[in-house]
């Protein structure tokens, strides 16, 4: 899916003053490309990802998915977009602690109205893809950080999304595990033709990216 933003701006009002978290960002991301967004903490990476992931609404500006203005659609449609077309991977995984690995992956499938057989089959396939089939019955607190991140990726892929957005997916992982996660995301991008957008400080990620956007003070300061 092609993504384009036009003057994307997000302003937060904190007390009496305003903070411009994302400032007139213009991006063009091609389908099946691997894009990294880098920048220091507080530069607006996460806010930008939340806007692209339709978790948040911009104060100004436009977002187009395949030429369609996604800010024109209603809340219900935005939810559907998030459920069916966007997979979000959080830095701190955000797995539901009372569900097993398998159930966490099944959750988006259940929300999408898939039959229980289909949920089970797809979830098991995704767990196999991320190499954690043997951990399917474990609760998140019994998993390592890397395993939790891989489960989170499997969950993000559950409904076969066209875009995967990952917020510092290697931020809490050791370098070996981080490398595995990068390889996994890269493989997904190239083999499944998924557009992957990653906010990161990790040079290993930027080295495999098709495009790297640099952010500073909420604005895109350059790209390569």
């Amino acid at each position: 899916m092609n993504i384009k933003t036009v003057d994307l701006t997000r302003i937060f009002h904190v007390g009496s003053h305003s903070v411009i978290a994302v400032n007139k960002v213009n991006l063009e991301i091609k389908e099946a490309s691997f894009v990294s967004i880098v920048g220091p903490s507080g530069s607006g990476k996460t806010t930008l990802l939340n806007l692209l992931g339709l978790n948040d609404k911009p104060t100004f500006g436009r977002i187009f998915f395949n030429g369609k203005d996604v800010l024109e659609i209603n809340d219900k449609e935005r939810r559907k977009m998030r459920l069916f077309h966007i997979g979000f991977v959080f830095q701190n995984f955000n797995l539901l602690p009372t569900l097993t690995s398998l159930e966490n992956v099944e959750l988006p499938l259940m929300l999408a109205g898939k039959s229980s057989e289909e949920q089970r089959e797809t979830a098991l396939h995704l767990l196999e893809l991320v190499g954690l089939l043997h951990r399917k019955d474990h609760l998140p607190n019994k998993l390592s950080m890397g395993e939790m991140q891989r489960i989170a990726i499997a969950r993000a892929l559950a409904n076969n999304p066209k875009i995967v957005i990952a917020d510092e997916p290697t931020g809490e992982l050791d370098s070996n595990t981080g490398k595995e996660i990068i390889e996994l995301l890269y493989r997904l991008c190239k083999e499944r033709k998924v557009t992957v957008i990653v906010a990161t400080h990790d040079e290993k990620i930027t080295s495999v990216s098709d495009v790297v956007y640099k952010m500073r003070d909420g604005a895109i300061s350059g790209y390569y």
């Binding site: 992931g53 978790n55 219900k76 939810r79 977009m81 998030r82 459920l83 955000n94 929300l111 969950r155």
Partner: peptide, 8 residues
């Protein structure tokens, strides 16, 4: 999390 993954 439910909201973020698109739950109604």
């Amino acid at each position: 999390v439910l909201d973020a993954i698109g739950a109604p």
